[in-house]
Design a binder for these strands. Structure first.
Lengths: 201, 201
DNA sequence: GTCTATAACCGGATAGAC
DNA sequence: GTCTATCCGGTTATAGAC
């Protein structure tokens, strides 16, 4: 059995993630946790503080992207495959995380400060790897920024835009969309490998 | 000079789009429009009604995607080029529209009903075009659903995720990100054409 | 630690004068 | 059409008993 603090965190996670900060109600979190509002404030003095806890925890989960360090003998194809699969596996379990994080980040961009902590993607390393691969004739030239952004976009966007996409591309069929998501990892990888393959017309 | 109703709509647009429904305040809209709350309610009885007006108008703007009909003698490459350029031009002017629409759609997916009106992307037509192109040896095989979703993802995502991407990929440099967006259209098109080009390894 | 009760405030909506 | 003043419900937060 969870202790009270864990109960609260689980409830807050649920409510904040699907209502956002402004839409969330302390009452609803309390109900969800099976306690009352007063106790909520006893554990986390304010709504803001409770939210910060949930948000930063969520951000840490989404963040693995930024840790994408390349090994000493990097194989770009292998790297892409692993990255897509790993990230996709996470999102299958927490499909609403990206929308939540992006939403709150847009409302308050300054919140990122302190969460990222000067952590940046090592663009120069990536560029070096790409240049080397290009020189070996393994892939065609791309800007590393566009490559990274493309990778992330293809993975995350379907989760953020599910309602529209499901309605308009899959005729509203829920199961069809789930099915689509299941094959999505492999499709993204193929798409990428094709785009990177050296032969051009 | 705008009349009062137009003033209100302009103000509401601004406030709703960057605070969302829950975060928006009627007072702020009134201030922004240079009038008072009472007058706001005189023109649009409730916050909900005013919001619906702004939201459906925004949705209509974002929607051109769905109207993507292919001509009788369709050239897929040309179609992609035009589509990306047109959509991108819209987003450069209204960069916050997608985040707004996606956010509200996630909070209340049922809202789409009546806005879309059974309008679906003609997947079968697209599939037919793709199959024909594949048979002619012009492109490599792809599922039409993945193709459409990829197209939309690559275009929209950078606008939705600007805060994170700018920070982590561009070291927080605002001008660098704008610059990135300027070259983005062409980069997406190239990426697509490469992925679709028939030669495979 | 956990509860009930309540304070303090905020925000959408209305009444009514001009 | 536009304003000032006000109502009223809901929401965060605290006091204080157990």
């Amino acid at each position: 059995m969870m202790n009270t603090e864990e109960q609260i965190l689980a409830a807050a996670r649920k409510v904040f993630i699907n209502k956002g900060f402004d839409g969330a109600r302390m009452q609803e979190i309390a109900d969800e946790a099976g306690i009352n509002k007063a106790l909520l404030h006893y554990y986390f003095r304010t709504k803001e503080k409770l939210f910060e806890r949930i948000f930063s925890e969520s951000f840490q989960l989404i963040k693995p992207v930024f840790n994408l360090a390349l090994g000493p003998e990097p194989d770009l194809h292998q790297f892409i495959r692993q990255f897509v699969n790993a990230y996709h596996a996470l999102l299958k379990q927490m499909p609403f995380l990206p929308q939540f994080v992006l939403q709150e980040l847009n409302r308050n961009p300054g919140r990122m400060i302190g969460l990222i902590g000067k952590q940046q993607i090592p663009m120069n390393d990536i560029k070096r790897v790409i240049d080397a691969e290009v020189k070996k004739g393994n892939i065609s030239a791309v800007s590393p920024e566009n490559l990274i952004v493309n990778l992330i976009s293809l993975i995350i966007f379907p989760f953020v835009a599910r309602p529209v996409l499901q309605e308009v591309v899959f005729g509203g069929d829920d199961a069809a969309f789930d099915n689509f998501l299941n094959g999505r990892s492999e499709s993204i990888i193929q798409f990428f490998l094709l785009a990177l393959s050296p032969e051009k017309s």
